[in-house]
Amino acid sequence: MSNQLVMYEEELQQISAICDVLQRDSNAKAVLVIDKNGQAMAHSGEVEHLDVTSLSSLTAGNVAATGGIAQLLSEKEFAGQFHEGEKTNVHISIVGARVIMVVLFDERSSLGLVRLRVRKAAAELTHVLEVLVKKSEAGNQPSVFAEITDDDIDNLFND
């Protein structure tokens, strides 16, 4: 099974730190980093009342659909999207062709500020992702599955 995404403590801390800085510097309500397949990876800000899992899945679906539209129009991808609400706005951008950065913001911020801050954060995030992918592909990290036995898997499904 190729292309498995693995997240380690060190990189998660770095990604979380990037989210924290972006959320603070852009006056955003919340920042989420999501895998393109819809898995939430990291977040920052006011997320207590958010259904992060659903938001991640729907955002990934949205990005996938937009990517499909891009292909039909002979575009490589639409790197950014903006949804304007009455109270909350959403800025969505693809980072490093692999993850999605979502910024939720209200009247305390502006699209211009968010775009400016996202650009800087995206560059930093791209770097961390490159390291993460290399580390994951090198395969010299211990795998959880090395310890898991067939019996462990069987036991999970025993009623």
Partner: peptide, 9 residues
């Protein structure tokens, strides 16, 4: 593509 998160286990 599975996502293994060692941080949140």
């Amino acid at each position: 593509m599975s996502f293994i998160n060692y941080s949140s286990r």
